[in-house]
Design a binder for these strands. Structure first.
Lengths: 325, 325
DNA sequence: GCCTGCCCCAAGATGTGCTTATGGTGGGGA
DNA sequence: TCCCCACCATAAGCACATCTTGGGGCAGGC
């Protein structure tokens, strides 16, 4: 079996014209070159070099090998360079999958930072809610998944403290997203005017039990399930009139006076809550936003960098949701 | 440094989807595959494989390597096949250089036999007299040289019994060529009619001293030098009127009655001695026809085969020179 | 005629790869 | 639900290949 090492030595010999010069070029001793060429000749079964007194020449077989060696060794260095570019972040691709409110907040900041520092990298983004996004991760269709989980979900999944259903994944907590209540402007629980000013905390605090009799507008299936759990823990079952994972639609429905809702704070960073007032819900309802990837992918430089930038984006001060016009 | 072995294993893994299957495919054990992949990942500095629970997938770097591997391994296989073809005589080139009378007698027979047995081989032929042909051999412009030497030349070159000036070459004696005399038809020394019949030995025997007063037509420089030596050993210096290495010209000059000549028997195989009679010269004058090559080239299959066929052609019964019309 | 450079050869030391044996893990069938 | 099997990782031992050092032969150049 011809090895690349043989071809490297052969090329050095044919270029330099002697074993000694080839050895100097290759940074080894002359007997090493001699032995390599002997091994090559043995493996191919015919001489490749003619030792004439003054110079070292190639036989026809040697010429054939040298001719192929150019392409083979060129391909090897090309492969090395391409992989080195990926390893050195001069190239590399990260396929992100994110839930909607993540892809409009954390992702743009992280991607911008990554592209700014390493222009050669490429990022692709698709949107999917957690169960599906994790499937994509496991199926190799994505490298990093932005997902979220509610605290109670982890407990339900067998009491495993190390991540529940994600125990075989690398889990990077990014931030804890406090959910806020949304009630129609002018609702009896909304403090008119003062609530929801830009940059300010929602001023009104509402016990969740106070919303027991309101019609509800729920979000994605998991959010809806969690909402029911929280309400039932508070002693009532919410009457859910609408369910949609389209947050602007939720806001619109609330603004139209069709009900109340609980939304992730993250979602309100990019949705203008027009016609609705933001209230603080007590007890606090939180969800944890995490970045997920496969353990092996953590060692892929572009993936590691993306995780780092996601963490930085999550750590940056969040703009406060506004009450809207 | 990426080695071809790594790429072979990587390809097997990516095709089979598991280390164990790749090991079976490669004919080794599973830990060997595991170690190879670990070594590859260490050498390129980034993971190339993602170990997900059910299947083994390539990372982006792994995809890049696999993409290059196709061409690299293909090139290696092509190189191996080409060299194997040369080693197996399904291909291969022999560059012959021969003196004129050799290229019209021994060479055609040997080349025909070689091409008949191994149609893939190619033979090229150029003509050159020994000093030049040996230079070409040493310069790598030819693989096999057909040459000749006169017995006295070896003695002159320092008494080395192992080949004189060719002591660094592989010398394969092919045949000993007896030189014959050529006198004009009807010359006083030529037996009219009976001499030089097709298939018969030259019947007339002439002592070289009897030609002392004849004008001479000499051949190539070495032949001419040897002629002078022989004549001087017989006690006279030949009067050389013409010197040419064109044997048909020599025959023509003799036939025209312009002098006598001594020619290699081999030359008369392909030159019709019209107008001239062939006589045996005593004492016998011989030259040794040999095949020369570089020692390393003996191990090149096509060269070895050519040498063998040349020896067989030389061993075959020689047609006798004819007296011509 | 001496000297230098080049190649081959042999022996010792080092490193690498392969194998066997073992443990841990996840998936599928009874 | 449990068991079993396939798969991968790891460690230890071994064999092979490679490299180095030291010595010798040989041809070319001053």
């Amino acid at each position: 079996m011809i090895e690349a090492r043989h071809l490297r030595v052969l090329r050095a010999v044919s270029q330099s014209g002697s074993f000694s010069a080839a050895a100097r070029e290759l940074g080894c001793t002359q007997p090493a070159v001699s032995q390599q060429m002997r091994a090559l000749e043995q493996s191919v079964g015919t001489p490749v070099l003619v030792r004439t007194g003054r110079e070292m020449r190639l036989t026809e077989a040697g010429e054939a090998l040298a001719r192929h060696a150019a392409g083979i060794l060129g391909g090897l260095v090309a492969a090395e360079e391409e992989v080195a570019a990926i390893a050195g972040l001069r190239a590399g691709r990260v396929r992100l999958v994110s839930f909607p409110s993540g892809s409009s907040t954390l992702v743009p900041a992280a991607v911008a930072a990554l592209r700014a520092g390493h222009p050669g990298t490429r990022v692709s983004l698709v949107e999917a809610e957690p169960p599906r996004s994790v499937d994509m991760l496991r199926a190799g269709e994505a490298d990093v998944a932005l997902a979220f989980r509610y605290p109670t979900e982890g407990e339900r999944a067998g009491g495993d403290p190390a991540g529940g259903e994600w125990r075989d994944l690398e889990v990077r907590p990014l931030l804890t997203d406090r959910l806020v209540g949304l009630v129609p402007r002018g609702h009896r629980l909304a403090e008119t005017g003062a609530s929801g000013e830009p940059g300010g905390e929602p001023g009104v605090e509402v016990g969740i039990k106070e919303l027991a009799d309101e019609p509800w507008i729920a979000g994605c299936p998991r959010c809806r399930r969690h909402l029911v759990e929280v309400c039932e823990a508070a002693g009532f079952t919410p009457r859910i009139d609408f369910a949609t994972d389209d947050y602007p639609a939720v806001v619109g429905l609330v603004g139209a006076g069709l009900g109340v809702a609980v939304l992730p704070g993250l979602a309100l960073e990019s949705v203008r809550p027009k016609g609705a007032s933001i209230v603080r819900v007590v007890p606090e309802v939180r969800r944890e936003v995490v970045a997920l990837t496969l353990p092996d992918l953590v060692r892929v430089p572009a993936v590691a960098l993306m995780l780092r930038h996601l963490a930085e984006a999550a750590a940056a001060p969040r703009p406060r949701p506004t009450a809207g016009a």
